[in-house]
Amino acid sequence: MNLNFWIIQTFNGISYGALLFLLGSGLSLIFGVMRIVNLSHGSYFMLGGYVALTVIWTTGSWALAIPAAALTIAVVGLVMERLFLRSDGFESVRNALIAIGIAVLISLAIGGWRTFAEVNWMQFIPVAAVAAIAVFFLLGRISVIAIEADPLRQVLLTVGFAFLFQQAALDIWTGNNFDINPPPALTQSIVIGGVYLPLYRAFMIAVALVIGLMLWLVMEKTRMGAAVRATVDDAQMARGVGVDTSRVSMFIFALGAFLAALGGVIGGAFLGIYPGLDFEILPLAFAVVIIGGMGSLGGAAIGALIVGLADNFGKALFPEISYFTLYAPMALILAVKPTGLFGRE
């Protein structure tokens, strides 16, 4: 255990923290603005990686995969927020989507088809159409009780989506493990003072720094950012003075999904992309948010750094209790200061 060990572990910890910042900052903002505990945030991370793989397989361009994946998942997040996480507006679109989903499953079950590959479309489409219309009218008769005020229902709803995303990913991208290979220019090592440091991890830190700076500028210097900060502090008051909190929520949810997917693409190079990644990374994102304080960008940055370092050193120094050393302080911080180290009251 010499100096090199400490340098390399610190470097690894910081670069892992950079990745966690991408994941955690979005989660933190979503919580701060909407008070929604989003358990499908890990799914955005995983789906981002998968979409990037598809883009790389079809176009061969890694640089194109990053924005393509992040934007795709941002749209997924946007749709999920607008249709499902809020009870008013677009009720019929929501009911129609659910009705179609149920109808597809019903007709698969009735036809005895195990997968879509076996489906006989001439029989499938009429059955599905009849079922969809029936379910649509049934759902229309059930009144939906507002979900905004109930954190438990939000948690369970987002978990439901996480399961749906998991199965969809399994169907589309199979259950194999994949690696996202960055261009060779980024996979070299740089030597500083006799220590070999992988360039890719330096790249991750740089991305997090740039994104962090951009987020800070947007939050502090733009009108939208001011609206977001006002909504975090007091949503009711913000509405009162004319901030369109509904638009702020949509913007923040899409931004959070965008950042998580970006993390998935970038992290996919050394974590790999595989089924189950979503629920593996999710608790770490929560650790970041809790330690840093919900709704605070600076808090997310420091929380990510702490979690990244604690995770790395914990695994290197006390492997047997490494996760315990991560989550126990998190529980303690929550017990002593529920708003996190840097959260606002």
Binding site: F84, R94, I98, G101, I102, L105, L108, A109, R114, T115, L139, I142, V144, I145, I147, D150, R153, L156, L157, V159, G160, F161, A162, F163, L164, Q166, Q167, L170, D171
Partner: peptide
């Protein structure tokens, strides 16, 4: 069926939205 998890996720979503 291999797509059973759609049903599970669907049960979550339907319960929470329509059957709190």
């Amino acid at each position: 069926v291999p797509w059973w998890q759609y049903v599970l996720g669907g049960v979550y979503v339907l319960t929470i939205l329509y059957l709190p």
